[in-house]
């Protein structure tokens, strides 16, 4: 099977900036994008740099953007892509992280966020002599989040991280769920309190990009929603952020037909946190020209949206 790869190249040691190069490869019937890239590296241009190891979607090394979407190169089958997305396969490094060379990015920011959620079991009370007795169901509920191989695809495609580097992000929060929901953990309350802070679970805009990007069906956004539920159910959310966030979301869309980001942040975190703690985010957004409009305009069919809400009794 022939395929054309259009690969983003960048070598900090050369004068040439970031650019694209095209390669023709011949692959076996079920060849992956990774096999295509290895063929290029092995037989055409050994200077192509990428991270890879297991070839079976378990080590998490080979995340990259393939036709604009973050995926594992070893799991992206060339024949599938050709069938549904066209003949040319464009390969670029992950987003939201600085490029070191070609398809290799610096993941420091990713690991720092994972470390921030205190990613280790913190049992309290006397340790059992053997194992903790827990039900299989309780363990398997965590296994969904344990599927995470920390490949970075969700962080690469996260639309919040694009504008707000302080957000803990989908990978770290999916891991946070794994500990907060572990019956053996003794720090659940402290964990939920910290994930409830600004930069935590309420910063997710539910854009679904991480769910789509995740190659292991962890569905990070759903894990973030799980934590939100735990925050509300455990009455951690004494400042009522969760409830206000949900109400703010509804009010905004009901009123104008679209999300009022300014209003949402103001309602979720309340005054003065909204004004002070989020001020630097606002400034960064202004600098990157990504500030939501201060004057919130309604969409044309806002009236119809309002009717939908009224019919639903919301």
């Amino acid at each position: 099977m022939d395929a054309t790869f259009k690969v983003q190249r960048y070598d900090p040691e050369s004068q040439e900036g970031s650019h694209y190069e095209e390669f023709e490869v011949d692959l076996p019937e079920y060849g992956s994008v990774l096999e295509g890239l290895l063929d290029i590296r092995d037989h055409q241009d050994g200077s192509l740099s990428l991270r890879c190891s297991c070839r079976s979607a378990i080590c998490g090394s080979c995340s990259m953007k393939i036709n604009g979407e973050s995926r594992l190169a070893c799991k992206a089958m060339v024949s599938d892509i050709k069938e549904t997305e066209g003949d040319i396969i464009t390969v670029e490094p992950m987003g939201n992280m600085p490029v070191i060379k070609d398809l290799v990015v610096n993941m420091d920011m990713f690991w720092e966020k994972v470390e921030k959620i205190e990613p280790y079991l913190q049992p309290t009370g006397p340790e059992p002599e053997k194992e903790y007795l827990v039900s299989n169901d309780e363990m398997m509920k965590l296994a969904v989040a344990m599927n995470c191989i920390m490949c970075g695809a969700c962080v690469s495609d996260c639309t919040v991280l694009e504008v707000d580097k302080t957000f803990l992000g989908p990978a770290a929060l999916a891991k946070a769920f794994r500990f907060a929901a572990d019956p053996r953990d003794g720090a659940q309350e402290e964990r939920l309190e910290s994930y409830n802070e600004p930069t935590g679970v309420w910063d997710c805009t539910r854009c679904f990009m991480c769910v789509q990007a995740c190659p292991k069906d962890v569905a990070p956004m759903e894990r973030i929603m799980d934590i939100r539920s735990m925050v509300v159910e455990n009455e951690i959310d004494k400042k009522g952020r969760g409830q206000r966030h949900i109400q703010g979301f509804i009010d905004g869309v009901k009123h104008s037909g679209r999300l009022d980001e300014f209003g949402l942040a103001r309602k979720t975190f309340g005054f003065p946190i909204w004004a002070f703690e989020l001020a630097d985010l606002g400034i960064r957004r202004i600098l990157r020209l990504r500030l939501p409009p201060i004057i919130h305009k309604s969409i044309k069919s806002a009236k119809n949206v309002k009717k939908i809400f009224e019919n639903l009794g919301v």
Partner: peptide, 10 residues
């Protein structure tokens, strides 16, 4: 197990 491995259970 006590460090956090989510072994399948009986």
């Amino acid at each position: 197990e006590r460090m956090g491995v989510v072994f399948n259970r009986t």
